[in-house]
Design a binder for these strands. Structure first.
Lengths: 194, 194, 194, 194
DNA sequence: TATGAATGAGCTTTCATTCAT
DNA sequence: GATGAATGAAAGCTCATTCAT
């Protein structure tokens, strides 16, 4: 990758991050290309140099965050700790993303209502990939006797649902700190697996 | 209530149901007044005879379903069964609504991105009222020794999060039947409370 | 005229008066048929039993007031007083109408922007008829030596312009009472004629 | 001001002038954004690049003309001529604007029926500023003995009313030329002040 | 006569997208 | 690479008008 490409890639990521911020705050439809450009002190038109269209841009927002989450999780998966600890870590990571990235790590939004077909498949794929990590952790736990459930996928969906939901009510200035939340969730959700 | 009022009320509910259907399918922004009217073989203009504006109409969609869910749940709450059974029933009811009403019973969407302030408060109120029912069931279970957790609200939020999430993946033609899903969810989520 | 016709005529006048009130307050475009009907505790539809359309209704508003003003003025014209006194009376009457009927006696609005061609001619005719009364008073005053100007029509237009303009600034709670206004206007405008 | 700003400002003025023309012909409600755009061979949407909304655009129409009238008048006010001559000049200028700019210099329309509150205040302010110029001329005339009246504001309102009214009846192809009208009006209205 | 309901044309406004410069 | 300007399609909404009952 030459110098130019690197610069372009960086600019692209800048745009993605800004866009993610705005989309988080206002939602897909509430965030206009104008808003996103304004945040970057650019003009609308310039965005189209880097991204095909709004769909494409917002897709990359999701993709960036999701990829990053997957990478983070996969690193923990490799480490030599108990499945219970892996699960706890996974909860911690997920909560972190859910809170920090809000809308963009919003596994909650119906992508069908937002993305065109072209973008839908890759997003669903990546979501699946992310979910698989949880499945693997659970499977591993079952294999080594730490967990004992039969419906892995259902359990995983409950867990992810519970975690994603945090986004709906979490406030930085709320009663419980992020750490407390993570602990309670880890604790309770583990009961579900054991 | 005179004959006319009844007829009007019925028509209003018709409209609400149709609107709910469209909004479920296409999301708030994707569903146009035109779409909703077309479904009813009416013209856009006619909708405005019954509802102030789109916001008002969609608000009533949510209100109708949510009120209905609350009523259904409250009936079970009064009945003379164990807290565990009440919980199972609650899960069943919730899943039923989540699946049948889809978007309209979508406790998931950020209402901030959809409703104007005027409509936001009542919706949040009613959601809270709904959540309270779950809290009560849990509290009752704790009081009579069936459940033994300390963080009622956190547990309730995990549970509702898990249940709402079903909407994201449920397909009528999926592998698991609705009944199976309800059973597994009840089963697993109860572990969380015990 | 039979009983029915009388009743209908009365109702029509009721509607006209209400319409005039609303149109005065909100202007032609601001006043909706709904508004007018509401004031009368009727429904929109009913208005169409009495008047062809909005244009027709508002036309009759203007016509009613204008006719009434003409009649009032003509009575004074016949009376056996000096032209100066006639003029003073005319000013008084005009101010009264301008203030009380506001928009409806609004000789100011461009009828071209409000009425369709069909209604335009009769309105302009009646306005002309009204203006003629002022011309006659002035002519009479010239004939008997009280006034001494040559451009009767121009003078009349100045005078009516000045008087109509009162509508733009008059406030019931203003510094000057209606009577004071009439006196000052009579006084100053007479200088114009002498 | 850079080149771009100048170009934009020019375009804005172009739009304002076109809008003024249309609004003059059809009135505020009769003139659609489509009409205005068509006159400029633009599309509706483009207008919104330059102006917030219709209200904003029409406000600027009024503002432009009124500002221009104020400027023109103020120049005469400074010159070293008699108050009588100043008054004559003021009448001439006013008539010129009334005739040339029609609706846009329409001090006649009730701005309350047209503008939203936000725009109302500045318009009323500017109208007042314009009126003040007439008051000053009159006051000056009184001070130097050319005029002898006590009710300055009332006189000014009569005069402006009379002048504005010209708009209602003036036709370019009418019997009296613009110059004749100005002369007669100046002549007669001066009698009012002396 | 009067009403409730519906229509439909027309309006303002928004915004993703395009493109000459 | 970036901008200013423009487009055009679509949306929400209003309201005079109609008409069966």
């Amino acid at each position: 990758m030459g110098f130019k490409e690197i610069k372009t890639a960086k600019k692209k990521e800048d745009i993605i991050r800004s866009a993610a911020k705005i989309v988080s705050k206002k939602g897909y439809h509430g965030a206009t290309m104008e808003d996103i450009a304004a945040e970057l002190l650019m003009t609308k038109g310039a965005l189209y140099y880097y991204f095909e269209n709004k769909d494409d841009l917002v897709y990359h927002c999701h993709d960036l965050i999701l990829s990053s989450a997957i990478k983070t999780l996969e690193d923990y998966l490799k480490s030599n700790i108990s499945s219970t600890d892996k699960f706890k870590k996974a909860v911690e990571v997920h909560v972190e993303f859910v809170i920090a990235e809000k809308e963009t790590f919003n596994m909650i939004i119906k992508p069908q209502h937002t993305f065109t077909e072209k973008r839908l498949a890759p997003i669903l794929d990546k979501r699946q990939k992310y979910a698989n990590i949880f499945d693997e952790i659970i499977q591993q736990g079952i294999d080594n006797g730490e967990f004992k459930i039969t419906e892995i996928k259902m359990a995983r969906m409950m867990i992810l649902g519970a975690l994603n939901w945090i986004q709906q009510w979490y406030l930085p200035e709320g009663k419980k700190s992020k750490k407390e939340i993570v602990d309670i969730y880890s604790d309770y959700l583990l009961k579900l697996l054991k």
